Computed example of a mutant assay.
Amino acid sequence: MTLRTLLLATAASACALPAVADVNIYTTRQPELIQPVMDAFTDKTGIAVNLAFVNEGLIERLKAEGPRSPADLVMTVDIANMQRVVDSGTIQPMDDQILQDAVPANLRATDNTWFALTTRARIVYASKDRVAEGEISTYEDLADPKWKGRLCTRSGLHDYNLALLSAYIAHHGEEEAKVWAQGLKDNLAKKPEGNDRSQVKSIWAGECDISLGNTYYMGQMLADPEQTEWANSVSIRFPTFQDGGTHVNISGIAMTKSAPNKAEAQQLMEFLVSPEAQAIYAEVNNEYPVLEGAPLSDLVQSWGEFTVDDIDLTEVAGHRAAALRIMEEVNFEG
C-alpha cells in the first residue's frame, strides 16, 4: 500500500467513525446551578452538554418545535411543572434499570416519564431571637392567629408555595386548604413579594418573625457576604403535616419524544443519579440527594434530620390547579 493510499484509507476510516453528539437540555433551573455537574459529565465522557434556560413558555416551545425539537432532555425545579410537561405529550418514558434502581419509587413517575434528581424541603425560617424552639411544629400552625403580622412569604402564586398548598390539599382536602390559605394571608406582615432570601432579610430587619423558604437558600445566603448576617439571624425549622412529614419538592428530568441524541442523553440521565453526580449536587447546591447513601454536605447535615412526607408527588402535582384557584379566591396577593 502506497503512502497516499494509506492516508486516504485512514481519512476515510476517520470520517466513518460516529461523532460524539452533544446533549441539549431545556431547563427552568438557572444553568449556573447545574453547570458543575454537567462539567463533570463532560470531563468523564467527552460529551458536551448545552443548557438552554427556558423560564417561560417551555411547553409551548416543545409543542411548536414538535419532532424537530433539538431538546433531548427537560429539567424543572417543581413537580407540578414537570407533570405539566409530561401531560403535554412531549415526553417519552425511560425503561432504564439504572434510573429505577437509583431513584426511590415515590420520587419518580410510575410510568417512568420523569425522575427526581434532588429534593429540597419547604421549611420555616424563624428568628433566633423572637421565636422559641418548638413554638412552631406543623404547617397547620402557620394559620394560627398567634402569628398575625409575623409571617413573610414570597408570592402565593409562586410554584414553591403552590406546591405546598397542593400538598395541604392532598392531606386535608380543598375546603380545609382554603381556610388555611386564608389564615396564612391574615397572618402576613406585609404584601407577598421578593424571593425566599428576601423574606429572611425581612426577619433580620424585624419586619416579621417567620417565613417560608427552601432549605438550600440558607447555603446560598451563607456563601454571600452581603447576606450572611441575614442567614445568621434565623434558624431552620422542619414543620410537618399533622398526619404526615415535611413537604419536599424536586428537581427532575425527563426525555423528550424528539430527542435527537437519545443514547447520549440517557447516558447523562444515568450519570446524574450516580454517586459522583449526587455528591456534587449535595456539595455545590446544598440539596438532598435522591440516591440512598449519597453523602450530604456538612452544612446540610448541620440543619438536622427530618421525616419526609410520604404522600405521592404525582398526587400533589394533580392538585396544582385547585391550589391556584384557592390562592386567587382568597386574594392572597391583595
Rank of each mutant, 00 (worst) to 15 (best):
S235N: 14
A294W: 00
S13V: 02
M327W: 06
V103D: 12
D78C: 11
M1G: 03
A126P: 14
I280C: 00
A40L: 04
V103Q: 11
L184F: 03
E135K: 03
N195V: 13
G304S: 14
W303T: 09
P70A: 06
A19I: 07
H319P: 07
T76Q: 11
L164Q: 04
V234N: 04
G244L: 14
G213Q: 10
N261I: 03
L142I: 09
L8V: 10
K63N: 07
Y281E: 01
A40N: 03
Q242P: 09
L6Y: 07
I34D: 02
S88G: 11
C208N: 05
T2H: 07
F271V: 04
L184D: 01
Q301N: 15
P260K: 08
E135H: 00
V74K: 09
P70D: 07
A177V: 08
Y288V: 09
D95Y: 01
A126Q: 10
A231P: 04
A80T: 12
S274H: 05
A294G: 02
E176F: 00
E264P: 10
D312C: 05
M75E: 10
I91H: 11
R237T: 07
D312I: 08
G252P: 10
G219P: 00
G244Y: 08
P145F: 08
G252C: 06
L165M: 08
E207A: 03
N161H: 11
S251M: 11
A181D: 01
D22Y: 00
N112A: 12
A19P: 06
F238T: 06
P104N: 12
G57P: 05
M218Q: 06
I311M: 12
D22R: 10
G304D: 12
P145S: 05
A277L: 07
T153Y: 04
K44D: 04
S202P: 06
Q100P: 12
V330D: 13
G149V: 05
G219C: 05
Q100N: 12
M218C: 00
E329F: 04
I280H: 06
K185M: 08
T153R: 06
E207L: 08
Q227S: 12
K146Q: 15
T314E: 10
G244M: 13
D224L: 06
E287R: 08
V85R: 13
T10S: 15
T215R: 11
A11Y: 00
T113V: 02
L165F: 03
T10G: 15
P225A: 05
M38V: 03
D196M: 14
E305W: 04
K148G: 02
Q199L: 12
Q220S: 08
E276F: 07
I169P: 11
P295H: 10
R154H: 13
F241M: 00
A254Y: 10
T228F: 08
F115P: 10
E315K: 05
R320P: 12
K257A: 14
A167D: 09
A80N: 07
L58E: 11
